[in-house]
Amino acid sequence: MGGRALILVKGLPLPKHHIFTDFSCNSSSAKLLRLRRNNNSWGRRNFSTWATNGSSLEPPDVPRLAETARISLAPHEVEEFAPKIRQVIDWFGQLQAVDLQSVEPAIRADTQGDNFRDDVPETFENREAIIAAVPNYEEPYVKVPKILNKE
């Protein structure tokens, strides 16, 4: 079910992980991406697509979660994380138990709307800095390992 991997990313100290399986990750851009993940407000939001199979949620399949998030875990790390993730899932189990019969489902928790922008082009002035942070760039393209038909 969607979302489990997020908890893994958000709630725990991050082990070494790869942004793209095929990318080498020793560059500054990888650090930026890692930073982004930590700064993100994922956990605080309301997940409307959360599974609702009663109070007993399935135990986490940690190796699979790690794979979907492109995180490499050693066997001892899997063992270490499993109970911690289990704890978080159990907490969601408690939330599931709340009686919401009379409550209208919310699409978004923080809906204000009308937060649109006009369709007016503006060129970002510091493009060089962005390009400089790309791990592997060969003018004018971002260079990546050969892509096989795999998603």
Binding site: L32, L33, L35, F116, P121, T123, F124, R127, I130, Y141
Partner: peptide, 29 residues
């Protein structure tokens, strides 16, 4: 706000939002 024109030189119309850089927030057109 990056302009989009088909056929522009590669990687010229990019910014922190569409490059997914930290701290950049999307705003819907």
């Amino acid at each position: 706000n990056c302009p989009y024109n088909y056929g522009s030189p590669p990687n010229t119309s990019v910014c922190p939002v569409c490059m997914g850089l930290p701290g950049a927030l999307p705003v819907l057109n």
